[in-house]
């Protein structure tokens, strides 16, 4: 369970990127955070995986106070998460394979196991033919799928995806969200930031609406498609 209590975030005075956000996401939920650009979606996600610290507030994940975790133990939290960054954050001088494998290398898995799982993840995002290409040889949409493969390859319990369909054409976007939905069905909690109304209309089960850093609404749709 992910619990946020009265989260405030200020990058620079006097603007608040987030203002008094409180929300709860239970294990196994499939939810969206939406809102116009600049409303604080990315900031909220970064606070959840603790890339940045909130100015005020508390975050509890599975009973653990995230802000109290010392820097050298933060890896325990991150190993449970798969993160798709809005800006991909790929290593452009490394091949697609190595970009995805990095999530597994840090776990110390065998080369054979890494190969198997990386291939599997790349196949799920339909990019296994480009395994030995470099990211700069790929289109934005393909790079985005490399980022997605890296996030799902270690079968995390929590997936955090920041605009994962921002560069994909509608068909592929639906395919990718379906993939997340499938992973969610296998038990993972999935949190997706998007401003794509079509996707929310189609997949939305639980949606948080952000506007200028404030949580202005929460909608829970009947989980007919679950």
């Amino acid at each position: 369970m992910i619990e946020l209590y009265h989260i405030w975030k200020q990058y620079q005075k006097p603007d608040w990127a987030l203002a008094d956000i409180s929300l709860t996401i239970r294990n196994g939920e499939f939810c969206f955070i939406t809102g116009p650009s600049g409303s604080g979606k990315t900031t909220l996600l970064k606070i959840i995986f603790r890339e940045i610290l909130p100015t005020e507030g508390q975050i509890i994940i599975d009973g653990l106070n995230v802000l109290k975790i010392p820097d050298h133990l933060i890896y325990r939290l991150r190993r449970q998460m798969g993160i798709v960054f809005q800006d991909f954050r790929l290593l452009y001088e490394r091949r697609v394979f190595d970009n995805v494998a990095i999530s597994l290398r840090v776990l110390g898995l065998s080369t054979k196991e890494i190969r198997r799982r990386v291939f599997n993840a790349l196949r799920q995002v339909n990019l296994h033919q480009k395994m030995w290409d470099y990211p700069y040889q790929l289109s934005y949409g393909e790079q985005q799928r490399v980022a997605i493969a890296r996030a799902i390859v270690n079968e995390p319990r929590i997936i955090l995806a920041d605009e994962p369909t921002g560069n994909l054409d509608p068909d592929l976007a639906f395919e990718i969200i379906s993939l997340f939905k499938e992973i969610n069905k296998r038990g993972a909690t999935v949190i997706i930031c998007t401003h794509d109304r079509e996707i929310i209309r189609h997949f939305g089960e639980k949606v948080f609406f952000l506007h200028k850093g404030k949580l202005i609404g929460k909608e829970v749709f009947p989980s007919s498609k679950k």
Partner: peptide, 16 residues
């Protein structure tokens, strides 16, 4: 630096 930050975000220990 970029690689280090990615490594940290995918759960590498400091020693790694």
């Amino acid at each position: 630096q970029e690689e280090i930050s990615i490594l940290r975000l995918v759960g590498a220990t400091n020693n790694f």
